[in-house]
Design a protein around this nucleic acid. Structure first.
Lengths: 213, 213
DNA sequence: AGTGCAACCGACCGATCGGTCGGTCACCAT
DNA sequence: ATGGTGACCGACCGATCGGTCGGTTGCACT
């Protein structure tokens, strides 16, 4: 099965290119991926890549856009579901962790796109489609925090700083590769370790964010 | 003044190369940095780089080793100073934030070296000198956490997961570049924003880690 | 005066880079 | 049958990559 998000086991060449490119970009970053290598991995000639994507930059944009949009789609749905702010925030975090662990490439691509999309070769299409999606989602979570604070459920935090904190807590570990595994002594993507991580994040927020009754 | 750690305003060519390479590697990563560009930035011919470093990989290793060792040196000293675990942990976090903000390239180089040093071109010297230093420091902080838990000062946390959490909280924001600035609405490296970040991190740990008396 | 050496340079190398071009092939509509 | 088209390919291009080589300075030491 492909590393794709959902069920659609489409095996069109375009999707196979995107899947392979996603894995390579996640592991090594934009500049270190060669198109010959990618083509060979997919089982196509290098020229064929250009039949599906105008150039390398747009291929990269397509890869990240697919991921960012899929993240936003799933998590906005999660945020929109009912419950008080505590429940909704915890569900959001749970769903985000699920998403990142079900698709092990996501965290790295996401992190890379968050902190190194600036200064890529110049021919990127404006900004990567999907950055807006992520920004919107962050804004929604920010609103959730404010709502919880207003209701007296959360202690007073600086919302924007707390958003950065949340992203750092959730995304970094799943992108940290060998370092994370070394610190942890185990593979972070193991089911039991994922469960443990969820528990720890929840516990931290329960005591560190949720107002004591 | 150079982006170097401390006072030593040495202006040897070797140091200038390291400084410039540090900036470039931090901004764009290993693969995207060309040696011609680096040489021109320093004001040398490209061949001269090879007089000071055997090849690109070793130059990269020297850059990151310099940073990792300097981080470890300063923070181990910070950890060794007295005080109860709460005080020592907070001082460690403060000093780490100081270090990362005084040297804006550090967070990115550190993050990169944590999650993408795997699979670089093969001629790296074993492992990068300094990875051990960081691992040792993480172990020391782990011991600090355990000590605090044993003394009943900290609530019960999964130490290794908490270490990952701490790194994510501290390092990621200062490496997040444009994304962080967009979320925050301000430049994270501004003095007032740094102060705010310190305050927020402290507050999170006070309520989220320190046991409620 | 002469020797050695660190620092530096321009010219060059093979390899690889992203990207182009002309063409083949299978399939589908008319 | 025939024209069109989407998918694909090998050969090739200029540019750039990391790295080498031979040589020239200038300073230190004797």
């Amino acid at each position: 099965m492909p590393a794709s998000t959902a069920a659609s086991a489409e095996h069109t060449s375009r999707d196979k290119i995107l899947d392979a490119a996603e894995a390579l970009f996640a592991k090594r970053g934009y500049a270190a991926v060669g198109l010959r290598e990618l083509a060979e991995l997919v089982g196509l000639g290098k020229s064929s890549l250009f039949h599906h994507f105008r150039n390398k930059a747009q291929l990269y944009a397509a890869v990240t856009a697919r991921i960012l949009v899929s993240i936003e789609a799933r998590l906005v749905r999660s945020l929109a579901t009912g419950g008080d702010p505590v429940v909704r925030l915890e569900r959001w975090l749970d769903d985000l962790i699920d998403l990142l662990t079900e698709n092990p490439t996501y965290a790295r691509v996401l992190l890379r796109s968050l902190f190194e999309d600036d200064d890529l070769p110049g021919d990127l299409p404006e900004e990567i489609e999907g950055h807006r999606a992520i920004a919107d989602m962050m804004a929604a979570v920010g609103g959730l925090l404010r709502e919880g604070m207003g209701a007296g459920l959360f202690r007073a935090v600086h919302v924007n700083h707390f958003l950065l904190t949340l992203v750092g807590i959730i995304v970094f570990p799943f992108a940290s590769g060998e370092f994370g595994a070394e610190v942890l002594g185990k593979d972070l993507f193991d089911a039991t370790e994922v469960r443990r991580r969820k528990r720890e994040v929840r516990a931290l927020l329960r005591s560190g964010l949720v107002a004591s009754r």
